[in-house]
Amino acid sequence: MEALDKVRETEVWKSVFRPGSIFRKGYKDTQRDRALAMMNNVLYHLHPVKIKRHGLKLTYTFCLGGLSFFLFALLTVTGIYLMFFYRPSADIGGAQAYSDMLTIRNTVFFGDLVRNIHRWSAHLMVFTVALHMARVFYTGAYKPPREFNWVVGVILLFLTLGLSFTGYLLPWDQLSIWAVTVGTNLAGYSPLIASQVRFLLLGGLEVGPATLLRWYVLHVLALPFVLVLFLAVHFWRIRKDGGISGPL
């Protein structure tokens, strides 16, 4: 204990925790320390010190937005781990993408579990985001001043679907390339721009090695980057619009 106090007195420790942080002085369960715990924390960018009591009510938000965000974080962590072992190449004769999938399943430390978590939470995230949207609709939470945050939300939904769909191709097995072929054909039958968009997305007339590389970059870099930008706006607007809407 005394040693811990000594550490707390060091310059280094003090430089890490801001004045008023609960890790500087020790936490007392007072209003003041509860407020400081938020204010001296990076979480203060997401949450204010106080919220309406109604905001705690589980049956209002069902935590769906928060859980979508958590799943996104979980997907990022597991995705980074998978990236260590995966090469997005599908050249004839050496589809490394697929053989890397087999390696992940069979030999990588916890590879199978991590891949399963990544896959299942991806599906779950699409689901929770859709339910979150339904919750927002049924509580009328898109009404002024939150109109624009709803629009941001629709963009997030679109990006979530995009992330899920681009990821679907990466295992490069029969399931993935044909699901992607069918999925992109949906838009591709039509004349005019749609078929050109399809060509651009696939990097060719049909799903091939170029598609794999393109979708890999979209999946691990471009789409997450854009999603995080919109998430920042989404969260910022929640606070600026006065916190959670309601009560009904």
Partner: peptide, 13 residues
Amino acid sequence: DRINVFPHLLIEE
């Protein structure tokens, strides 16, 4: 009727 985010909301999340 306002409550502190720490600990009430954070615990819930």
